[in-house]
Design a protein around this nucleic acid. Structure first.
Lengths: 119, 119
DNA sequence: TGAACATATGAACAGTTGTTCAAATGAATG
DNA sequence: CATTCATTTGAACAACTGTTCATATGTTCA
């Protein structure tokens, strides 16, 4: 048993080795935080519904509000969050603002999540 | 303009078509809820850190607590959540309980998330 | 410029979440 | 079977989140 190994639940595992492995792969604290923030965005069924609409078409805010039967204010608040995390982008056309998906990761992540829960 | 189209932000879009497309692809409400619940689990940096440890090795609760510098109670609470969402499985060996990843979707989802934020 | 429309924003409120502390369960061992 | 160790659980508390309501911003057009 190496010097720096720690006794724990009497297994006397080589914690040093585990620590090395883990520290080598574990992202920086900032990145872990950003990662959690990103997944928090997916962690709300309203936002997922918005994303599903954007899978099909580029739409304006009041279209989203109608299709999803929500307040336009509520939709706008959620769109802001989606935009801040760069899952969605917007384009102004006259009085309207049109939203669409920002990149393909959204589809992959949601597809994987769906696969997982349907196992 | 078809009969059921709705006037909205003066674009007179064919909402009927959008609605058809969206409704065809949009999962049931239950599944949307489950999906959001799943991503909520990823939406906490503590749980992501736990998953990163489990990427490297099967470990017991007090190992996790030590490696992550957390209360063993806090770790246990989070493991319960990870287990309920089937991201993690456990195996008892004497007094200890060892945790490991339940399937490969975890890796894919986190990898995609990481790709997204590093763009 | 002023009215009308589409969207964004801020404050406030209820509901949810992660941690801590204390206590309970479960397993091995003398 | 009582003790010890590893883990789980429940209650409680502060921090955070999504919606609503009221209001502000920004754009078009008469």
């Amino acid at each position: 048993m190496a010097i720096h190994d720690v006794e724990c639940c009497e297994t006397f595992q080589t914690h040093e080795e585990i620590l090395k492995l883990v520290n080598a792969q574990m992202p920086e604290e900032d990145e872990l935080y950003d990662l959690a923030e990103l997944f928090k965005v997916f962690g709300d069924s309203t936002r997922i519904r918005i994303l599903y609409v954007l899978f099909e078409a580029e739409v304006c805010v009041c279209d989203l509000a109608q299709v999803l039967n929500m307040t336009q204010s509520a939709v706008s608040h959620q769109l802001k969050i989606l935009k801040q995390s760069k899952l969605v982008k917007s384009r102004r056309e006259g009085k309207s603002v049109f939203y669409s998906l920002a990149d393909g990761h959204v589809r992959t992540i949601i597809a994987q999540g769906r696969e997982h829960i349907n196992e």
